[in-house]
Amino acid sequence: MLQIRDLHKSYGKAAALAGVDLDVAKGETVVIMGPSGCGKSTLIRCVNRLTEPDSGSIILGGQDVLALTGPELQQFRRKVGFVFQHFNLIARLTVLDNVMFHLVLAGMDRDQARERALAALDKVGLKAAAERKPGQLSGGQQQRVGIARALAAHPEIMLWDEPTASLDPILVGEVLEVMEELVKHSGTTMVIVTHEVSFALRAAHRIVFMDRGKVVEEGEPERVFAQPRSEIAALYKKLLMN
């Protein structure tokens, strides 16, 4: 489904990605873990071109992502759901509009878009809050709206950029619950950047550890936590044990 080869990205002299190779199969849930600044977020942002890589290649569903421009790129992005750490909702729109507006702008009939948006909101348990503004919701609810927004477009792949990192610990649970539910029942390919070790252990098909812009270890959750080969994986194992 997704093949990333020798991906490089630098911010000035600092290398965020230093030759990343990664394959994700269709329907697979891959959790990317690693210390802050290791390039996890940069990697998934490169996948939908929110960040332009310096070199390398990204193939998604047979499409050379880096060759896309203009309408093709926009079309491609509609197939990729993206959940942000800070929710990134449009503050002036209602919850429902936040979830449906991109569908309408992509050419979908407004009623159909509304139905689909309401269904997505229902999935994350926020149908009742459809007419409220994001500012009237808690952080966890806002993130669930963000998830609904990504889901509404029926994406081929969903990219999660630390969806619980900016939430209070109390609110993390409700989001993880939704995420776990989606992983188990949606069948959508997912690449999740998170520090939630237990979630990764429960939900991921594969865990990828990154350090200093490179993939240092990857494998099935049970295996990498049982027999970590990298320092990072060992640290996460220790975290899990605690």
Binding site: L50, Q75, F76, R77, R78, H102, A153
Partner: peptide, 9 residues
Amino acid sequence: MAAQSLGLS
């Protein structure tokens, strides 16, 4: 960024 990621022109 959200608008970009949603494929808006």
